[in-house]
Amino acid sequence: MSIQHFRVALIPFFAAFCLPVFAHPETLVKVKDAEDQLGARVGYIELDLNSGKILESFRPEERFPMMSTFKVLLCGAVLSRVDAGQEQLGRRIHYSQNDLVEYSPVTEKHLTDGMTVRELCSAAITMSDNTAANLLLTTIGGPKELTAFLHNMGDHVTRLDRWEPELNEAIPNDERDTTMPAAMATTLRKLLTGELLTLASRQQLIDWMEADKVAGPLLRSALPAGWFIADKSGAGERGSRGIIAALGPDGKPSRIVVIYTTGSQATMDERNRQIAEIGASLIKHW
């Protein structure tokens, strides 16, 4: 067993022997301040990774656009098919120029040779490549099948209805392509620590998230040296922004954090800054 596999296998073990965790309302004060600064709703939840206990939450059962955070769930569904012998990570998928959609920095470079399922998941999570996500959605049967996968996990809230990039439209009061912070946090925890996926697939999923290259201005910008984070960000229309993450000190994750916002007129930089400040408060009061 590799060191990384050992780390993920012992996530519940280490967490069980940690000192009790206590909620700190100071972080919620910052979440509410972010709402004021952005002029928009902000949803927040913080779960203990081992027990699933909610440590703090704000608007945990209000719907927010998922945006690209759905790509972690998508690759979880792909990995479940791999575990069941219905898919192979090494299978190569070929596609054409007509398949390319807006923001496809990886797939646009491989029109000639195609990409493997493993490479597509890596591109979808680490670079948020939209064509990679659409190609992977095709392998599982489309958005409705991802929703069905989530329902089978016990998540009857999260739903995907459309493809990239239309799913980022974020129309107010439109339930399409949305989740709730509580539902997303619980589902992410199941994917990373539950028995739904094999140990190898859980490790692969967290490795992809740990290698995320496009979430630097968010929670990662607030992390002290030595902290662990595996995350996936999302951005959408109407001032929408979000991030889902597993993080913790001492090089291992111990909490799940989900943050979503929508309806702001603020710039992307300002949305990023507010999420980073929430992260800084979380870490300060850990």
Rank of each mutant, 00 (worst) to 15 (best):
I3K: 14
H5G: 07
H5M: 15
R7P: 11
V8E: 10
A9D: 05
F13R: 02
A16L: 15
F17G: 09
F17D: 03
C18P: 05
P20Y: 03
P20I: 02
V21R: 06
F22T: 06
H24A: 15
H24V: 15
P25I: 09
K32R: 14
D36L: 15
Q37D: 15
G39T: 09
G39S: 13
R41W: 07
G43T: 01
Y44I: 08
I45T: 12
I45N: 03
E46N: 10
L49I: 13
N50C: 08
I54G: 04
E56V: 08
R63E: 06
R63G: 04
P65C: 04
T69W: 00
F70I: 06
K71T: 00
L73P: 09
L73G: 07
R81T: 07
V82S: 09
Q88C: 10
L89G: 06
R91V: 05
R92L: 12
R92W: 09
H94P: 09
E102S: 11
S104V: 04
E108S: 11
V117T: 07
C121R: 00
S122E: 15
S122H: 12
M127D: 07
S128T: 01
D129V: 00
T131N: 04
T131D: 01
L135E: 06
L136N: 01
I140N: 04
G141D: 07
P143N: 04
K144M: 12
K144G: 14
L146G: 03
L146W: 05
L146K: 00
T147E: 09
D155M: 01
H156E: 12
H156I: 15
T158L: 01
R162I: 02
L167H: 03
N168Y: 03
E169V: 11
I171Q: 15
P172A: 14
N173S: 13
E175T: 14
R176D: 06
T178K: 02
T178P: 00
T179Y: 00
T179G: 01
P181V: 07
A185P: 00
T186P: 08
T187F: 06
G194T: 15
E195Q: 13
L196G: 12
L197S: 05
R202W: 03
R202T: 15
Q204F: 07
Q204N: 14
I206L: 15
W208C: 03
E210K: 11
A211I: 06
V214C: 06
A215G: 09
R220Y: 02
A222I: 13
A222D: 09
A222V: 13
A225N: 15
G226Q: 09
F228V: 07
A230P: 00
R238W: 10
G239M: 02
G242A: 10
I244V: 13
A246C: 12
A246K: 03
A246F: 12
P253F: 09
P253Q: 08
I256Y: 03
I256N: 01
V257Y: 05
T262K: 09
G263P: 04
M268C: 05
R273E: 14
Q274K: 12
Q274S: 10
Q274R: 11
I275Y: 05
E277R: 12
I278H: 00
L282I: 12
L282Y: 03
L282T: 09
K284P: 03
